[in-house]
Design a protein around this nucleic acid. Structure first.
Lengths: 241, 241
DNA sequence: CCGAGATCGTACCGATCGGTTCGATCTCTG
DNA sequence: CAGAGATCGAACCGATCGGTACGATCTCGG
């Protein structure tokens, strides 16, 4: 039955509904773990409608990733805003919020990072880089308000904790990961703030120097080093990358 | 020309050669980014030979991941062993070694984590979990030798830094990431050791409690929550969960 | 009230992919 | 030297997938 009797036709809402329904499926099954036909059946929409709104499957994927990045970033920013004025409390709120996410039974890691691991095209990578940039902005802001010696450096280190905790929670047990990451983040914040007044930045003599973010994409088109021409295949070098 | 004139036939070496040649290709192109036919053409082997040695493509992938995990783990362990007896120097060696890897133009993140993001089957996930466990063992050993208050906790937090730095280097610029992560790791180590003598473990009042590693797989078979029956599709809730 | 447009369901198409088979050719073992 | 086994190259197969086409049905704007 095309266009059910009492339904209202609203293309924009249809598009939003497709996005909303497809997001968890693509996240849990993987971008290539489900075909368009099955996806359409699951979310209750015809293939023609999906293609009319998104053009291609990659178009749907990109729109989904952008919407998810928006939503997650807003979610974290609201958690920070709700934590009051204390930068330490704001940082703790970030990891408490992440910890709740980790405990979700459908948690499978960061959707953007996962997507970049699946689709090597530049479009998805750009969304992922932008997503990490949003995290860095949030974390660097906390570092600045806390009076860190080098806010961009601390922001990037905190981003490592955020993404690292996500990976660890996804692949090595989620229990406690949020609290463990929060404790580490607060320890880093303490170290960066106590060395800010008096001593020179760079704590223990190092100068990591992350003055500004450098999202330089290290794309590679290099081919492998298979210098085997075809004569004898069995060489004795079995180690060494 | 099957079996070239002067070549030696040695199945085990052929298998090793396939593994060695396929590893960089599958890493750079992605597990699903290249078909068996093209892969065989690239590494110079016939499909029949590949299937005779590995049974299926997934068999090749699993063998490749296991070999890569072995190699990378050994690589890091040797870097630690070569850093002398000082735990701080050992920890610095870990991140210096990682930093070199990040700068490699073909660097694309952790192969095991990427593989787990691509193939959702339990086999690949198990290899990834085992891989992270090896990292934890290495890092927890350093934490113990350094006299950390809670070595398993610090080991897990350092793992977060390792994996987080890998993600950040892959998707937000590799320049400086190794040094930045090393500085953060040393700061965490300092905080964990200076609080070990005298105060109670758990620095700032938290009890993250990572007494032992808990690689409990949080697998999920739950279906999504698409409670849309099909009447009107356009709902107004656009900011759910 | 009528035409434009949105949607459905299904059928269809070409491409690709994982995997198999087969004959030919060469090496290794007994 | 003879048979077993390894390898190649190419053809082949069934399944799946992304994407298109089409007729039918319903809503909405003028």
């Amino acid at each position: 039955m095309p266009v059910p009797k009492g339904s209202t036709i609203d293309p924009e809402r249809t598009r939003a509904a497709i996005l909303k329904a497809a997001t968890p499926v693509l996240y849990e099954r993987g971008l290539d773990g489900i075909g368009v036909a099955e996806l359409c059946a699951l979310i209750g929409v015809s293939k023609e409608t999906l293609y009319r709104h998104f053009g291609t499957k990659d178009g749907l994927v990109e729109a989904m990733l952008r919407a998810r990045s928006d939503r997650v970033s807003r979610w974290l920013a609201e958690a920070v805003a709700a934590a009051g004025d204390d930068p330490r409390a704001q940082l703790a709120a970030v990891f408490d919020t992440l910890g709740e996410w980790f405990e979700d039974p459908v948690f499978r890691g960061c959707a953007m990072v996962n997507a970049a691991a699946q689709h090597h095209d530049e479009t998805v990578r750009a969304v992922t880089t932008r997503h990490l940039g949003r995290y860095i902005d949030l974390l660097t802001g906390i570092a600045e308000r806390a009076g860190a010696a080098d806010p961009p450096l601390l922001g990037r280190q905190l981003l490592m904790l955020v993404e690292g905790a996500t990976v660890v929670a996804a692949h090595h047990g989620a229990a406690g990961t949020g609290e463990q990451a929060r404790q580490a983040a607060l320890a880093l914040l303490s170290a960066a703030t106590q060395s800010a007044s008096g001593e020179n930045p760079g704590a223990s003599g190092e100068n990591p120097g992350a003055s500004r973010d450098n999202p330089g994409d290290d794309d590679s088109s290099g081919d492998d080093d298979s210098g085997d021409s075809g004569s004898d295949r069995g060489r004795s070098d079995s180690s060494g990358d």
